[in-house]
Design a protein around this nucleic acid. Structure first.
Lengths: 155, 155
DNA sequence: ATAATTGCAAACGCTTTGCAACCCC
DNA sequence: GGGGTTGCAAAGCGTTTGCAATTAT
């Protein structure tokens, strides 16, 4: 129950900016409004179009520069839509597993927990989906990184 | 219990290639070997370095062209490491939720299931992690796409 | 022999950044 | 008026692709 959480999101945003001596410009305001109006998930391009549709010229560069501010102030969050690709792992003959990842040093621990699979199956069925695959990653800080202070930066 | 599953991975790969009238070249063989030797997760660059370290000149382009073949033949899988960014959603005042995504039409359904959170917490503790966030996406085919045949391609 | 494979370099799409003009505070 | 903000265009980065030479079958 923080003080700003029940306020108008724009106030939250302005406070966040002020705390860093940054400015609330009309363009940024339009970006915030547009972002909050988005029904569900949106890409940078979709947000850009939405801002422009609201009558504000804006360059993609400005959107890109504003996004971190919206994220920091908690108005939006990165959806982490599963990005198939970029990383791989050998799977020949291996059991399925999910990942526990340390944000500090990048360590990846594999874990298996059948209970998850069953619950996932139930949810898929509930919505009439045929389940093909899933992404399940737990992101945290491992014991060494928690005590050791700053990140080690590996992977 | 398919016929090839217990064979040597290279045989699986060769079979897969042959089925499509593709060729097993020394370079591809080296790529397969290197991929299977990788301890855990690897990027395209890491794989390229590994192949080169094994004594084979190879261009990144060739690696990129070979990866789909390894994926199709089931020797490796895309890890889908959470790619923070690219997609966002408004989070101001919203409850946490996870996503059920249709591979056919891109529909995203949000779901909440407390049981997951508790299990995740348990796993994190088991490995001494402080849990910061998680990514949990179920990927499947929605009812319309299952019956309607081919994808609709939306989002 | 013939069609697949390869490396190179150019093209691509998305994101970041340097810079000069601009404008909020 | 000073320092943050913006747009533009250029640069980056990872991935894809056209092409001519090469090679597996």
């Amino acid at each position: 129950m923080t003080s700003t959480n029940n306020q108008d999101p724009l106030a939250v945003f302005r406070d966040h900016l002020r705390r860093q001596q940054l400015r609330l410009t009309p363009v940024r305001e339009a970006i915030v409004r547009a972002a909050l109006c988005q029904a569900g998930h949106f890409s940078v391009d979709e947000l850009t179009r939405a801002v422009r549709a609201s009558g504000h010229e804006v360059s993609r560069a400005t959107i890109y520069r504003a996004l971190p501010l919206l994220l920091e102030s908690g108005l939006i969050q990165a959806t982490e839509v599963s990005k198939d690709g970029s990383y791989f792992e050998a799977s020949f003959g291996r059991e399925h597993h999910d990942h526990l990842i340390c944000r500090g040093c990048g360590t990846v621990i594999e874990f298996q927990f059948e209970a998850f699979q069953m619950l996932e199956q139930q949810i898929a069925e509930k919505y009439g989906f045929e389940l093909l695959s899933h992404v399940h990653e737990l992101i945290g800080r491992c014991a060494p990184c928690r005590s050791g202070g700053d990140a080690h930066e590996v992977h």
